[in-house]
């Protein structure tokens, strides 16, 4: 045994002090609370809803209890699921067209200042005019109902993608832009190797907003367009159930729409995380 051995502190816990232990504990608790609290709030809310209905003897054509809504969801599943597929189809198609249109216009705008000056104001006007007020006109002039629905949803959804992607394409690092010039990159190379990757985080931010908006656009368009042609979506089912005072079915359809929105948002957030996790600050976990 050498002299040095005797001086080694006996407690290995010295590196992990009370302060650190407390912080680790807090982190664990927070991790659980993040899931537990919303679930708890939901459970309490549903319970309160149920009690209010039961205690006050509220008739189901005014406010159905949560149990009845779930029952209806199961009982009417065939109708509602078909409607969900229709709405989902329009939403996803509108989102796809919004991505193509938004990114396409953004690229055009950054490549040509003239194009930007000419068309950007009209993109803004389309965005700020409420879709409910344009939709009736669209269905007068567009015969194909699917095309009309798509157009409505697209008008609502494309702008955040256009605005964000344009900003992203213009935010490429100035020194890297200079470097591209020094290496005599073509315009296309600069777009492909520098501007598009720089714009990716911005685009993905716009995409998450557009995902929710295309669902809203699809629902609003359905309200205006009514039935016919391609079958009925969830929004039409809600209208129809309202006319028949079938309030439980209204709630069930509403539940499905809300769930669809949440799933779309979660899916796009996941996509964004997967694409950025290797390099972008937003996907970084801070180590402290």
């Amino acid at each position: 045994m050498t002299l040095a051995d005797r001086h080694i502190p006996p407690a290995p816990d010295a590196l992990f002090d009370a302060e650190e232990a407390r912080r680790a504990r807090m982190k664990r608790i927070e991790g659980v609370a993040k899931w537990l609290l919303p679930v708890l709030v939901l459970a309490l809310g549903v319970l309160a809803w149920d009690r209010v209905v039961v205690w006050n003897d509220i008739p189901h054509y005014i406010l159905p209890g949560p149990g009845l809504v779930l029952q209806t969801l199961v009982k009417d599943w065939a109708i509602l699921f078909d409607a969900l597929l229709v709405t989902l189809q329009i939403t996803l198609m509108a989102l796809a067209v919004a991505v193509i249109g938004g990114v396409g216009l953004a690229v055009l705008f950054t490549q040509s200042r003239w194009a930007e000056m000419s068309f950007y104001p009209y993109a803004v006007i389309l965005q700020v005019t409420p879709v409910v007020s344009i939709a009736p006109l669209i269905f007068i002039y567009v015969d194909n109902r699917l095309a009309g629905l798509l157009l409505c949803a697209w008008i609502v959804a494309f702008f955040p993608i256009l605005a964000n992607t344009t900003l992203g394409l213009k935010s490429a690092d100035h020194n890297l832009t200079d470097l591209m010039r020094i290496y005599r990159a073509t315009r296309w190379q600069r777009l492909r190797y520098l501007q598009l990757p720089s714009a990716l985080p911005y685009f993905l931010g716009g995409l998450r907003i557009a995902g929710g908006l295309s669902l809203i656009g699809a629902v609003v368009a359905e309200y205006v367009a009514g039935t016919g042609g391609i079958g009925s979506g969830l929004a039409f089912r809600i209208l129809e159930a309202g006319y028949r005072l079938n309030i439980p079915r209204m709630f069930a359809a509403l539940l499905l729409i809300a769930l669809t929105g949440v799933v779309i948002f979660a899916g796009l957030s996941f996509l964004s995380h997967m694409l950025l996790r290797k390099w972008h600050e937003s996907a970084l976990k801070r180590e402290t």
Binding site: N175, L176, L179, I182, R184, L194, P197, L200, W279, H280
Partner: peptide, 18 residues
């Protein structure tokens, strides 16, 4: 020709996605 000149800026100026 392109490539006859190399440049180093004050910042590293790397592409973060690559």
């Amino acid at each position: 020709q392109a490539g006859d000149l190399g440049v180093v800026f004050q910042e590293p100026t790397l592409m973060p996605w690559a």
